[in-house]
Amino acid sequence: MEIKDFIDNFASNFDETDTDSFTPETKFRDLDEWTSMLALATMAMVSEEYDVELTAEEMRNAQTIEDLFNTTKSHL
């Protein structure tokens, strides 16, 4: 599991944001496009791509893309 692929998968749910600038340190909650729907879509992406079911609490605790990556990785 590579962080680069994870960022690409994470970015694929966005329609309006310039995702080229996404880095592991990107604080996704600060993005204008971030909504509770994107949180659900992110959880669904993690389930589909990595077969990991993130909990609502794990989602809430993540601030950066890297946090999400590490949480996902911890389930593998």
């Binding site: 509770s36 949180a39 659900l40 959880m43 079911e53 993130l54 909990t55 609502a56 609490e57 989602m59 809430r60």
Partner: peptide, 8 residues
């Protein structure tokens, strides 16, 4: 028990 944050 859902995947949505209870705060919502």
């Amino acid at each position: 028990g859902t995947n949505v944050d209870e705060d919502v």
